[in-house]
Nucleic acid binder design. Sequence first.
DNA 1: TCTGGGGTCCTAGGACCC
DNA 2: TCTGGGGTCCTAGGACCC
Length: 425
Amino acid sequence: MSRSSVFALVDVNNFYASCEAVFEPRLRGTALCVLSNNDGCVVARSKEAKALGVKMGEPWHLVRARVPGLIHRSSNYELYGDLSACVMRIAAQFAPHVECYSIDECFLELEQLQQIELAGELLELRTRIRAWTGLPVSVGVGATKTLAKLANDIAKGMPAGVFHWESLQGQERDRRLEQIHVSEIWGVGARLARRLTELGIHSASELAAADLARIRQHFSVTLARTAAELRGIACVPLVETVPVRQQVMVSRSFGREVMTYESLLESVLTFLARAAEKLRAEGLAAQQLQLFVSSNAFREDHVQYVGGKAVALPAPSNDTLELASAAAAALRSCYRAGIRYKKAGVLLRGLVVTPLEQGSLLDNLRRRRLRERLNTAVDAVNERYGRDTVRLAASGIDREWGMRRANVSPRYTTRWEEIAIAHAR
DNA sequence: TCTGGGGTCCTAGGACCC
DNA sequence: TCTGGGGTCCTAGGACCC
């Protein structure tokens, strides 16, 4: 990283809510909430819903009772993922170095231009994203990623939607930092904020001024970096290449409680098939499978149970059938009768990059080749005709445990057949 | 009745080795 | 009564992010 570069954080405003409004314009200007799986919690809110006091993560059944007149949509990740990719592609046209940080945010590393010139570039970026995708973005600029984040918060409140931290003069900058509570800083959550305030550090300006060795000693190297970044010392580099992931997890809460072993097995095998598909899509194989099941922690009147089992695989695998056998064995060892299960999940770890030829001595090479071809064919069919078109019989037909998603929008950009639904609405 | 899902990094402590 | 030191690897748990 050269001294003459700056970071810009491009962030889509109210991302999921904005995606819904792109294809359903009558939603613009309404108090809209997008809900998590099972329509459980609010995970995104339009500006108008925020103004009505709807909080991130609030249970939907409480919110809808408290705040009349809210509109809601179930989450539609296929749609959001596709629009996200469009935004990232456009942003990449404006900078040589880009880090896709989350589904709705990316960091750019830019040459340190004259501020006027830079502002012009970023306004153009914002206009182009708006014109090509319909989505509103805000852009914050700073000498470090942490400052770019803070600048982005300020940009959200400005008509132009672009804000450069360095545009503040020395005194004004200090005054801003004094007004920012530590809990608003990137990397400081509720716990750290509480511990910091106990030590008398309340504002961003106090954290920036704190002794780094003391922070390092009381907390961690991560928070010491954050403090340094607030001073304008860049410690958190841009991550351009997506690192090989370390684990794949697929877990869900059920639409309703499940008691039978058969239903629980259906859910576990469904999650497992999805996880194996993710492994294959990324050219990975797992050495360890971990399974977990749990009862509904919110029901104090029920017997609570959290069970889990880790299984080491004889050789790294991404074969659905082989992993399914391991998952079924794991479930047999942690299933308890009489429990009302609410959630289950599969975690694949010890990931290695395929292809791999070592295998175990007992492995039959020919059989494995056939399995590879089978998995490839299944993935191709499911890609083309929709998830779970071909699936394990043991993963269920009726799926009484399935998710509730009462109000999901069409996948406008990735499914031809759903455009007709959109038209009929 | 209804309360999400999927990740990463850091640290402390135990096991083990020489 | 006294009871090494230093290194690595692994795991669990805590904290954070969106």
